[in-house]
Design a protein around this nucleic acid. Structure first.
Lengths: 101, 101
DNA sequence: ATAACCAATCGTACTTTTACGATTGGAAAT
DNA sequence: ATTTCCAATCGTAAAAGTACGATTGGTTAT
């Protein structure tokens, strides 16, 4: 068996914390989340206006945040409304809090 | 001018937070930091024993943590003692706390 | 039906990260 | 002086991340 990080047994908490941290590890994604915290929800288009980045790039960042569980999207035709995923947000907060004790 | 993230103006806090988060974005580095929190300091060799990773890989992770400012190394011949950088740790803690409010 | 609109996905290029073994460098011990 | 030991650095390969423009898909309006 090839020796990769996947074969190391980490505590679930460490893995989950690293997963959240990784999602937070880009200034654009921090900015997106700060924006969402501020006004609870927003549309992809809003962000495209705010950041000088291509629509596809913003979409990619949103996907990362969604995959990490930090946000969720609701269809709100013809737009998609993104909000903080409050449950996972609480989990993340607790994990970081515990980590920094 | 090429349009890259570097040309976007982020708040310093967002950049710093993303920087810390990125450093925390790998389970091995989380585990290293948890280990350091536990026993305040350790040597590279200790970690090489704990993790089934090559010495050079551990060294690389330590460098990342050092570059992000989360740890610091003191020469303690013939070994090098790594400790949490308490000042920056406090900063990181405050930034994450503020972020999750 | 078709046009318009928003956002996801595809294809692509480039950079960065993660891992390894091998080598180097510096300090302590023989 | 030489050997030993620890840890950093180098070189390299494979995978993941970041960005773009172009395309697709699904909804609402015309």
């Amino acid at each position: 068996m090839k020796k990769t990080t996947e074969n190391i047994v980490f505590k679930d908490d460490s893995k989950q914390l690293a997963r959240f941290a990784k999602a937070l590890g880009h200034p654009t994604r921090i900015a997106i989340l700060k924006h969402l915290e501020h006004q609870s929800c927003c549309f992809t288009g809003d962000l495209v206006d705010i950041f000088p980045l291509a629509q596809s790039t913003i979409s990619q960042h949103l996907k990362e945040l969604k995959d990490a569980g930090l946000i969720q999207g609701e269809v709100n035709p013809p737009k998609i409304k993104y909000c903080i995923n409050k449950e996972n947000w609480k989990t993340a907060k607790a994990l970081f809090q515990g980590f920094f004790e």
